[in-house]
Amino acid sequence: MHWLQMGGYWPWVWPSYGLTLLVVVLNIVTARRSLRAARAEVRRRLQMQRSNP
């Protein structure tokens, strides 16, 4: 508990770490989603080409 108080600086320390963690997670999620979307788009094009040769 004492450690979480950060000597009274917790209102500035923990939001800083929270925001950083959020941005790190968002970067991971968006990067993976972007790659997955690009792959799905390629697969869709391939399927369309195969169905309409």
Binding site: N27, I28, A31, R32, S34, L35, R36, A37, A38, R39, E41, V42, R43, R45, L46
Partner: peptide
């Protein structure tokens, strides 16, 4: 993260190429 994003970007740019079909 840059490498993951760049792979997606490269796929989008090269979507008509034969290698992209194989990679997908």
């Amino acid at each position: 993260i840059m490498l993951v994003r760049a792979r997606g970007e490269v796929l989008r740019r090269e979507r008509g190429a034969q290698w992209v079909a194989e990679a997908a």
